[in-house]
Design a binder for these strands. Structure first.
Length: 416
RNA sequence: GUGUCUGUAGCUCAAAGGUUAGAGCGCCUGACUGUGGAUCAGGAGGCUGUGGGUUCGACCCCCAUCAGACACCCCA
């Protein structure tokens, strides 16, 4: 049997109702904030991610689906959304402040576990063109409110500032100085990180490394006054917006392009992969990718993780349909098809039984389809142009005509 | 890439190395020949993930492989 590749899955059966629910709420909140959807290709030049995300990151080093196309060009299935959106911003010469959102598949070659797949979905937001701390507040508040609107509980917003480039270089040097004497006591992964990305040592889960980190230098001591003021302002704005957050000096996002604001929203109801949303400010990325120097802030949510939480929260059932048409006999079956068309064109949601089985079997299926009413058609109804309508909730049955049904139920028309 | 655990009917799970691999739910049929849900009776459905091996004999033990779960790494 041919089956799905490791780390990929079908979204099948009632799971789709959770996706629709999530999409409906997110779309509505983003519409109110006048964000515009953008759809960029899943396939991009490998160089876009190498330059955008950073050559030293794990995403670029070991997690990308990269291959050569027939023209020997190196292409990659996107591992995240921001680089592509920024590429589109530059390529399409978008100007001024752009409020953009996207939703779609992302790909990372990793071992799957709870809340992590190789092909997964992200909902992302990018607010490009403003350095105003209010832009940070806007982006974070929207993420927070979307998660709240979904009814998620036990959410924790972690906030940090990683400063600008000079702040970070100073801090990085201080960390290297601090950790070097302890080199032998660090876990092997962190030993590697000391050269590549010492900031990452801070969120190691190794207990011994953790103790060493206790008295490591704090990034806040390396923020220049201007960066510090900016950080304070973002905190004040979030408080005004009633976003509850926790300051987390160790929070370091995995991608190289972040500056100043970094944040993450975690759920305590997931396993180890607890981050449902991550993001921050990336003032250098547009220039890095060849555009004019443009500040920006954004985030991404992992939708599979949100779906897991939603499924724990509530059971969504398929909405009931209006009519299930049951028919038996040659003339009745032809008549049923016409009734099916008329009901549908009048705006009702209708399903017609195709089995030709006995009425009790077909009615059982009507019940199973959670239809409000079954329309029962035999040859005598076909001859008289009447309908037997059985209201399944109350069990009442009536003889009527399709015209009568239309006038009584004032059906929704297709066009408004 | 590393570690631990798990693969038996559509689903959830049984079956001390020893007859013909079972049960619940679901599905189908009938009781009820033009009337759903409940009840009762019956039925279909399995190369025990796959490929090797050990054994008189393997769902069970061994090896490999594929897949899944969880964790590490990393991230959403």
């Amino acid at each position: 049997m041919i089956q799905t590749l490791r780390g990929t899955k079908d979204i099948v059966g009632s799971e789709i109702f959770y996706w629709h629910h999530l999409e409906t709420i997110a779309r509505e909140l983003l519409r109110r904030a006048n964000y515009q959807e953008i759809r960029t290709p899943i396939l991009e030049a490998t160089e876009l991610f190498a330059r955008g995300i950073g050559e030293t990151t794990d995403i670029v080093n070991k997690e990308m689906y990269t291959f050569l196309s027939k023209g020997e060009e190196s292409i990659t299935l996107r591992p995240e959304g921001t680089a592509g959106v920024v590429r589109a911003y530059i390529q399409n010469k978008l100007q001024g402040i752009q409020r953009l959102w996207y939703m779609g598949q992302m790909f990372r070659y990793e071992r799957p576990q709870k809340g992590r797949q190789r092909q997964f979905h992200q909902l992302g937001l990018e607010l490009i063109g403003s350095a105003d701390p209010r832009a940070d507040g806007e982006a974070i508040a929207l993420a927070y409110e979307i998660l709240q609107a979904l009814g998620l509980q036990n959410l924790l917003v972690s906030l940090n500032s990683v400063g600008d480039h000079t702040d970070r270089m100073g801090y990085r040097g201080a960390l290297v100085d601090y950790f070097t004497p302890y080199l032998a006591d660090l876990d092997p992964d962190s030993q590697q990180r000391l050269q590549r990305n010492p900031l990452r040592i801070l969120d190691s889960k190794d207990p011994k490394t953790q103790t060493i980190c206790q008295s490591a230098p704090n990034i806040w001591d390396y923020l220049q006054p201007e960066s510090r003021r900016r950080f304070d302002r973002v905190q004040a704005l979030l408080t005004d917006l009633k976003v509850k957050f926790r300051l987390e000096p160790r929070l370091v996002r995995g991608l190289d392009y972040y500056t100043h604001t970094a944040f993450e929203i975690q759920s305590q109801d997931l396993g180890a992969q607890s981050a449902v949303c991550g993001g921050g400010r990336y003032d250098r990325l547009v220039a890095e990718l060849g555009g004019t120097d443009t500040p920006a802030v954004g985030w991404a949510m992992g939708l599979e993780r949100l779906i897991l939480l939603l499924e724990n929260l509530q059971t969504l059932n398929p909405p009931p349909i209006d009519f299930y048409i049951v028919s038996r006999g040659e003339r009745a079956e032809s008549y049923a098809l016409v009734v099916w068309q008329q009901l549908r064109q009048a705006g009702f949601q209708v399903e017609m039984d195709l089995t030709g089985a006995k009425f009790d079997k077909q009615l059982k299926r009507a019940d199973h389809a959670s239809a409000k009413a079954a329309i029962i058609l035999g040859d005598s109804e076909a001859d008289n142009h009447t309908l037997q309508v059985k209201w399944l909730g109350e069990g009442r049955q009536e003889t009527t005509t399709i015209e009568d049904l239309f006038t009584r139920l004032a059906p929704r028309k297709n066009h408004d």
